[in-house]
Write a protein that binds this DNA or RNA. Structure first.
Lengths: 120, 120
DNA sequence: TCCTTGAATAGACATCCATCTAAACAGTGA
DNA sequence: TCACTGTTTAGATGGATGTCTATTCAAGGA
């Protein structure tokens, strides 16, 4: 169930938004990633994992940062996982998550305003 | 109704996601921007506007690119406008939209993977 | 003034989504 | 094997969201 789709999607994608119009397909793929980040809890989870010492964090670390039930956190982690932004690995009792920096980097590159056709 | 809230939000925001954990407030503000981009139609609109000659596009240019009703396009433009990603200006019969490159730039900067505490 | 065209608003409707509780699964240790 | 802790899955529910049609507003021309 470790789907890496988004990496492929990201590989095809994209010159910066502002360089040339996105195709419908590119837009669908990119919107999936943005959708995964379009929630405050998921953004904080992503940030907590990415900034955690060692580049990984276990679910137990994450749950304490929120006033939410365990299953809700688990749900959000699943969304992030399925979008390809993070991966999880079980080691003994605990599950550790880490981010895919390439995906963040590509996303960042897509957003860079970049040079467009400026008026003369 | 020309709300520039998100620019202020963005000003306060943020060191890269991966540098330090987002606060709850920062996460809410950022998620608002990502939510605005979490739709294929809005992403394409944004891209069409940003990449259009002169840095601006009128609604009439945009509508033709989609199999959607005018009101639906108008709705999506409103979402983008309220999020602070674009502004619209009426000139005569037509309304022209352009992006706020600063917002894109800040967003891009937030996503850059950046250096985190790497294991020794 | 009236008509036409471009664009936004209002309201309805179906779908999606964040959250919860209850239950199941995974691993550790007695 | 049993009990305990950590994590995920299943199912339900209320609220948010994308789309539409009908209507209204804005600007220009006959």
């Amino acid at each position: 169930m470790s789907k890496q789709l988004p990496l492929a999607a990201i590989d095809a994608c994209c010159s910066p938004l502002a360089r040339e119009p996105l195709s419908a397909e590119q837009a669908v793929e990119l919107s999936g990633l943005f959708k995964a980040m379009a929630d405050p809890v998921r953004l904080r989870l992503l940030s907590l994992i990415a900034s955690h010492a060692g580049g990984e964090a276990c679910v137990c670390d994450l749950t304490d940062a929120f006033d939410l039930s365990g299953p809700t956190i688990s749900h959000h982690l699943k969304v992030l996982r399925q979008s390809g932004l993070i991966t999880g690995e079980r080691r003994g009792t605990w599950v550790y998550y880490r981010v895919h920096p390439e995906v963040l980097a590509r996303l960042s590159a897509v957003l860079v305003p970049g040079e467009r056709n400026v008026p003369a």
